[in-house]
């Protein structure tokens, strides 16, 4: 099957893979790519001229922000409250010198919006992978769901689990196996070390991505928090010793 379009765009400091299995106009790709660059220009904490940098540095006020920036900041605040501060965009120094960095939510949010743009262009079967966080729709092939691997923490080219996901799904993994990467616990200011990786499966990448970060910070307590508060989501947690923990519903996603 050679139909569809596969495009990789380097934007927001990462590779975003756009894998559309429908025959659509290439303008759909152009629209999504333009959107991702708009998000980068608006929310990048590496660009001093971005509105988020300007606001974080106190150079502009909240009422000078666009509606979408205010919406994202409001979303961030609601997730911070819900996770009792485990997800906090104002806890560590950002590259621009401020302490405001909503990147942890912007990625998932922007990819979910990109999925809506594809849908608006008539696409029904596609997979968007932004730095390992995925929003997908439909199937990979007719009657064949998307097969999604969860990266093995210590073997970059291997999968720790393979899932079959279709229709509408979001999956995000939070981990620190990237060289130099770390996730700070807002409560202690120290990098979190309890878990090797946390994967969350749900429908809306905006929240799935943010919760993966929050659960990673909270450790296994976070996995329990997720079960208690978001039974609609599933989690797959890997410890440094290679043992795994998963929610009771996770197994149904495993590919046979």
């Amino acid at each position: 099957m050679a139909t569809g379009i596969h495009h990789v765009e380097v934007v927001m400091g990462m590779a975003v893979s756009l894998d559309v299995r429908d025959d659509i106009e290439s303008s759909a790709i152009d629209t999504v790519v333009a959107w991702l660059h708009h998000v980068d220009a608006t929310f990048s904490t590496y660009k001093m001229e971005s509105p988020i940098s300007q606001f974080g540095l106190g150079l502009i006020s909240a009422d000078q922000l666009s509606e979408e920036v205010r919406d994202v900041l409001t979303l961030c605040e609601s997730v911070r409250e819900e996770t009792s501060g485990a997800f906090d965009i104002a806890c560590v120094p950002a590259p621009n010198g401020s302490t405001l960095d909503p990147s942890g939510l912007v990625k998932g949010w922007s990819i979910e919006r990109a999925a809506e743009l594809f849908e608006a262009h008539g696409a029904t079967n596609f997979c968007i992978n932004a730095g390992g966080d995925i929003a997908l729709r439909g199937n990979a092939e007719p009657d064949q769901p998307w097969r999604i691997g969860i990266r093995h923490p210590s073997e970059p080219l291997a999968s720790a689990a393979v899932l079959s996901l279709g229709d509408r799904a979001a999956i995000a993994t939070s981990a620190t196996y990237e060289r130099g990467a770390h996730i700070i616990d807002p409560k202690t200011g120290e990098p979190t070390t309890e878990l090797a990786s946390v994967t969350i499966v749900g429908e809306d990448l905006t929240y799935v991505d943010a919760y993966a970060t929050a659960v990673f910070v909270m450790g296994l307590n976070g996995a329990e928090w997720l079960l208690e508060t978001h039974s609609e989501l599933d989690a797959f947690v890997i410890g440094h010793d290679g043992l795994t923990w998963e929610t009771p519903g996770f197994n149904r996603w495993r590919s046979s």
Partner: peptide, 25 residues
Amino acid sequence: LTAQNANVNSVSGATSTSESYQTSL
């Protein structure tokens, strides 16, 4: 954990730098 090298369409993982992407599945 049992690593599998399976035929997958996409991979979920923390690969949000171009460096880690280059060596990723």
